[in-house]
Amino acid sequence: MITLEGIAKVYRTGEVEVVALRGISLHIPEGEFIAIMGPSGSGKSTLMNLIGCLDQPSSGRYVLDGYDVSALTDDQLAWIRNRKIGFVFQSYNLIPRASAVHNVEMPLIYAGDNQQRRERAMAALESVGLIQRAGHLPSELSGGQQQRVAVARALVTDPAILLADEPTGNLDSESSLEIMKLLRDLNQQGRTIVLITHETDIAGFAQRVVRLRDGVIVSDERQSVATEMVR
């Protein structure tokens, strides 16, 4: 599903070179729930941007669902993001002026996919249990509800992977638990999930934990899946 081979990323700001990733190789098979952990500055955000096709690696090869992403144009990357990747961000990133269902519809609008758009958006909202809030603006929803709308938006195009970047970072523990249970359920239905976090108990929901430090993988281990959070 996802194959990274010798991925490196170097940022240049003026004359200073910052090496964010130095040779990451990672394979994520279909249906896996993987957590990527590491302290800030470890390069996990950079890795998340690369896996999410928001950025291009300086060197190395990245194959996502059969597509070699390292050599695509901006518009092709937009297409990959639209069809293959569902994003869940720490700060929800919903469009404030649009209702919940319109936010969920949005990837379908950009996909040019107008068939039963509203129905599919409603179905996605139903799968996160928010169908009765479809007409509400994000500002009228709680943090947990907003994040569930974001999950519905990520799911609506039926992507190959769900990429969650600190999805519980802005939530209280009760909402966090709800979101994590939702992600776990989606994984049990066969969804591939890549979770970026720095919290051990959140990472506990994943089957596999990869730890980064200073731009390299320091550990990669499988674990039994938690069902409740220990806080």
Partner: peptide, 16 residues
């Protein structure tokens, strides 16, 4: 700017 970022992340192309 942020809204544009969100739209691009979920698949808006330049022309959109």
């Amino acid at each position: 700017t942020r809204e544009i970022g969100i739209r691009k992340a979920i698949g808006a192309r330049r022309q959109d």
